[in-house]
């Protein structure tokens, strides 16, 4: 059975693209056939986070306009042969595609792939409407900040109004040290405010910046964020996995090990 999941947030810069890249790669590591679609027309980014920016020939708009077949536009991942990216167009704008076209495209891809992940642009305009058009489920990414949470709440309302009932939450960029001293809202706080089910929490991890610099998603690696993303993948597949202890790894032992790791 194949599923279409839109990854959205309302606010920009909370980690939608990073989440899409990592969750997609993680599902591919778990032997699922996955296609990632960058729906942010005009501001394409998923290609560069995945490290596939040099392989783009055709893009989403080309497919929709019939300039090429879907197969021609799909870029195979460097590492995982069952992972594909459909890049966005950089020199067009959001009005180049409409929700009906997106739905048709997604329905076609459904025949061959287990998971279709849609990386949604920020905002609630045309780009958002395109991205959610063909989606069965939604994952909302937020950070524990007032602005991101407020926007997430708006998005939850809009998804409900568009009949997307299965909506889950990722709390991203958690800093447990700040949560501990009361200067950052906790996972529980965010969940209480937004009142939707949690599918994962990802710590603010330097390794994400490093991985993005290199164009290689870190899911499945030994880092805390890598494990958190992998857990999210398992939960998407319906497994019941307990929440990762985000503090555990920051103990004395890790710091001790860290001393030897640097340089």
């Amino acid at each position: 059975m194949s599923e279409v999941i839109v990854i959205t947030s309302g606010k920009g810069g909370v980690g939608k693209t990073t989440t899409t890249a990592n969750v997609g790669t993680g599902l591919a590591q778990l032997n699922k056939k996955v296609v990632l679609i960058d729906t942010d027309i005009g501001l394409r980014n998923l290609d560069v986070v995945m490290g596939l920016e040099n392989r783009i020939v055709y893009n989403l708009v080309d497919v929709v306009e019939g300039n090429c077949r879907i197969k021609q536009a799909l870029i195979k991942d460097k590492k995982y042969p069952n992972l594909f990216l459909l890049p966005s167009a950089q020199t067009r704008d959001k009005t180049s595609v409409n929700p009906e076209q997106m739905k048709k495209l997604v329905d076609e891809l459904k025949e061959e792939y287990d998971y279709i992940l849609l990386d949604c642009p920020a905002g609630i305009e045309q780009g958002f409407k395109n991205a959610i058009a063909g989606a069965d489920r939604a994952i909302i990414v937020t950070t524990p900040e007032v602005s991101a949470i407020r926007d997430a709440d708006r998005i939850i309302g809009l998804l409900e109004a568009n009949d997307i009932k299965d909506t889950k939450l990722i709390v991203n960029r958690l800093r447990m040290d700040m949560v501990k001293r009361g200067d950052m809202m906790s996972i529980e706080d965010v969940q209480e405010i937004l009142a939707i089910d949690l599918i994962g929490a990802v710590p603010d991890d330097e390794q994400i910046v490093i991985a993005t610099n290199q164009g290689e998603p870190l899911v499945g690696s030994n880092s805390l964020a890598g494990q958190a993303y992998m857990n999210i993948c398992h939960r998407i597949m319906g497994e019941d996995i307990p929440l990762l202890d985000l503090e555990g790894k920051n103990g004395v032992w890790t710091k001790f090990k860290g001393l030897f790791k640097k340089n």
Binding site: P144, E145, V146, I149, R150, D153, R154, G157, M178, V179, R181, G182, D183, M184, M185, S186, D189, I193
Partner: peptide, 19 residues
């Protein structure tokens, strides 16, 4: 009061009016 709690309280009120 912790700033985290301040944020939570502000958000709760704000979202009521947003909704």
């Amino acid at each position: 009061k912790n700033s985290g709690d301040v944020a939570k309280d502000r958000l709760k009120l704000l979202l009521i009016s947003d909704r």
